Amino acid sequence: MSEIIKTQAVVLGKMNYSDSSLIVTLYTEHNGKISAIVKGARSPKSKLALIFDTLNHIEVIFYKKESRELQIVSSADLISYYPNIKSDLESTKYAFAVLELVRNLTIENESNNRLFKGLLKILDHFENKKEAPSILFARFFMFLITETGYEIMIDKCSICNKELNPDSSVGYNFTTGFICNECLQSHSGFEKIESELFKFLYCLKNKKFLNSLKVKTIDDGNFFLEKYVREHIPDFKGIQSLSMFK
Rank of each mutant, 00 (worst) to 15 (best):
192 K>F: 09
191 E>Y: 11
165 N>H: 01
101 L>V: 03
216 K>C: 08
67 S>I: 07
115 L>K: 05
187 H>R: 00
54 T>C: 06
217 T>V: 03
49 A>T: 08
221 G>N: 07
127 E>H: 07
37 I>L: 03
140 F>E: 11
203 C>Y: 13
6 K>G: 06
92 T>M: 13
206 N>V: 08
69 E>F: 06
68 R>G: 04
98 V>G: 09
149 G>P: 04
84 N>I: 09
159 I>W: 01
174 F>E: 15
74 S>N: 07
107 I>L: 08
146 T>L: 15
69 E>W: 00
9 A>G: 05
64 K>F: 05
5 I>R: 01
202 Y>W: 01
44 P>H: 02
187 H>W: 05
207 K>I: 06
211 N>M: 14
177 G>P: 05
241 S>F: 05
131 E>Y: 13
198 F>T: 06
149 G>M: 04
171 G>K: 10
221 G>V: 11
237 K>I: 14
1 M>N: 08
43 S>Y: 10
139 R>W: 06
78 L>I: 03
14 K>G: 03
92 T>L: 14
50 L>K: 15
14 K>S: 03
168 S>E: 10
142 M>C: 09
117 K>V: 11
129 K>G: 14
115 L>E: 02
146 T>V: 15
183 C>Y: 00
111 S>N: 10
129 K>S: 07
26 L>V: 00
152 I>V: 10
109 N>W: 09
103 R>F: 12
